[in-house]
Design a protein around this nucleic acid. Structure first.
Lengths: 251, 251
DNA sequence: GAGTGTGTTGCGTATTGTGCAACATGTTGT
DNA sequence: ACAACATGTTGCACAATACGCAACACACTC
């Protein structure tokens, strides 16, 4: 069903370019004629999945997308339940708390709660991070068996800083360490000067997994001691894990 | 582009049925063969717009939908900005505060903040309400000229209570009254025993319009005097209207 | 006012989406 | 336990329809 696949590609493009698409963009990236791109977007807009700004003629997300997402959040209602406990964790650590899920080899950020410190690193919900570089990604990958992890990555791992792991073997080794340690670490592997720790939680009934992480800039840790943050995150894991029936955190 | 239109219809169906679809459902409602429905859903799932539960084989919203919705919320960032002031309004009135936008002849609920009273009427974000019966709907419709409103409705208006307006002419009359009054009222026209008042706000730069409403059960108003609620809502309109540059509320 | 970039229609052709059938699997009923 | 039914997923031939090519309309730029 190629036309539908093209339509979905256009939607992905819309996400990547940050929410606004022109007919020409779709035409170029999908390598189809402008006429085709025009009709494609018009069809999507007809049902409300996307909508065209009558002034700029640009296409953006529509209300149907919001409604669909609402259905997703119902499935992942842990996300809503986590809100208050994430706020408490942010208050306690004074740093940004993240929540994300795995999508292929990327982590999709579903929610962020900014800490109280003036300077905070955070992205908007919906953004994606490379799973092998983000703490949340490592935490979620560590739930999977090695062969499945291998199949997710093709070729060398893309690096965003000098610390980023660049081989799958190094990643697998790091993940086995993560399993033993109980939480994942990203030490400037995604952003320079930013460290993050993360744990993964699995809802017993639906089997859905999420990751929660705390990120903090190195300069904010005067003594370089991040044990308090780790303890706070692990405490969060025990509390929230018990609530959603996670097997690894409730024993 | 009929195949894409069918795909979008399937997504609408997914929203209406509450988030989970089976191949048979799509086959029946779109009146296509099961094979077609299967391939259609598989194509949508390929890009991550929807995803199939490997156990139940049911299709639900995917992560791409969440990312698209994030783009929508960026466009309507008034919604995020409104959060705190909505909470204040809910605290002050003790009743549920709603925020919604118009989509055709329906209002899509984007956010609700529940009041402090024990019993509260609220729906989840993403739900749709008939615009001619909801206070938010009337507030948003009152921004449009009569001919455009007529074109939105076809045939008699669907009634959900005995108070629901059932003719377009009656609706237009009510809307002209709404314009004079400055705020919209739904007196048990959507739910029995529930009243709601609403105002519409338009962001100056992007031209996007939202409605904010307060709903309250009749039995919660001992003396039947809802003037305090109206005053609180109008005060909200002046404060928030100024912030987003609404022309009608800032003069 | 010529020139460029853009989005949206007709129209003929070939790609591709369609129903039919068959198969695999899971569920119900007796 | 087996039959009967419902459901999801593949080949395959045929017809529907999505495609590119133009041409047009419109907005900007120089």
């Amino acid at each position: 069903m190629k036309s539908i696949e093209k339509a979905v590609s256009a939607l992905q493009l819309m996400v990547e370019t940050g929410g606004e698409l022109r007919v020409g963009d779709v035409s170029r990236h999908l390598k189809v004629n402008r006429s085709t791109a025009s009709r494609l977007l018009a069809s999507l807009a007809g049902g409300g999945l996307i909508e065209q700004d009558p002034l700029t003629q640009r296409y953006g997300a529509g209300i149907l997308a919001v409604q669909l997402a609402a259905g997703f959040h119902r499935k992942f209602d842990i996300v809503e339940q986590a809100q208050r406990e994430m706020e408490a964790l942010a208050r306690e650590t004074q740093h940004t708390v993240w929540l994300g899920v795995l999508s292929g080899a990327e982590v999709v950020v579903l929610k962020t709660v900014r800490g109280s410190q003036p300077i905070q690193f955070a992205v908007e919900p919906g953004h994606r991070l490379p799973a092998h570089a983000a703490a949340m990604g490592k935490a979620l990958l560590s739930l999977k068996p090695d062969p499945e992890i291998r199949s997710l990555f093709e070729g060398p791992l893309q690096a965003t800083t000098k610390q980023t792991l660049h081989s799958i073997d190094a990643l697998l080794q790091e993940l086995s360490l993560t399993r033993l340690r109980g939480y994942a670490i990203s030490d400037q592997e995604l952003f320079d000067g930013v460290k993050a720790i993360s744990i993964a939680l699995t809802e017993r009934h639906k089997g859905t997994s999420i990751a929660v992480s705390v990120s903090y800039p190195l300069f904010a840790l005067a003594d370089g001691n991040d044990q308090p943050i780790i303890d706070a995150l692990l405490a969060f894991g025990r509390h929230f894990g018990a609530r959603i029936g996670d097997a690894r955190w409730t024993r």
